[in-house]
Design a binder for these strands. Structure first.
Length: 114
DNA sequence: CCCTTGACTATCT
DNA sequence: GAGATAGCCAAGG
């Protein structure tokens, strides 16, 4: 699908709003399931353009870490919002809800399936 | 146009 | 597993 800002934004917003509570999805996955592979770096831009509030904090890096500096205010906000939904953090990495403590993070499926 | 900048990623060391 | 590296690609200067 060729890039068109309006279409892209709409697609991204829809995907992000669809991420369930307590679940997360990576930037790359959001872009891909929205029909725009290799546009991970554009996802945050699209979210920023949304007038309607979005669960932006449910979007994280593919390695399960948050995209902000650990000591930043934004990082703390995102982490708090996720933890309030039951998302756990194990050594800085998010772990979707309903999963037990001792899980292999590398074998974890993303919280939101395609 | 050319260049730089990211809320990114996959792949090596 | 932490860095470094090389792709990625739209925006904005």
């Amino acid at each position: 699908m060729s890039y068109n800002r309006e279409k892209f934004d709409q697609a991204i917003w829809k995907t992000v709003s669809g991420i369930k509570k307590g679940r997360v999805m990576s930037y790359g996955t959001v872009a891909r399931v929205s029909g725009f592979p290799r546009h991970a770096r554009m996802v945050s831009r699209a979210m920023g353009r949304s007038v309607e509030p979005l669960p932006w904090y449910r979007v994280v890096r593919s390695n399960h870490t948050l995209a902000f500096e650990v000591d930043s205010e934004t990082y703390r906000k995102q982490r708090r919002l996720l933890e309030e939904e039951g998302v756990k953090f194990i050594k800085g990495k998010v772990t979707p809800v309903e999963l037990k403590d001792e899980v292999d993070l590398d074998k974890l499926l993303w919280g939101t399936e395609v």
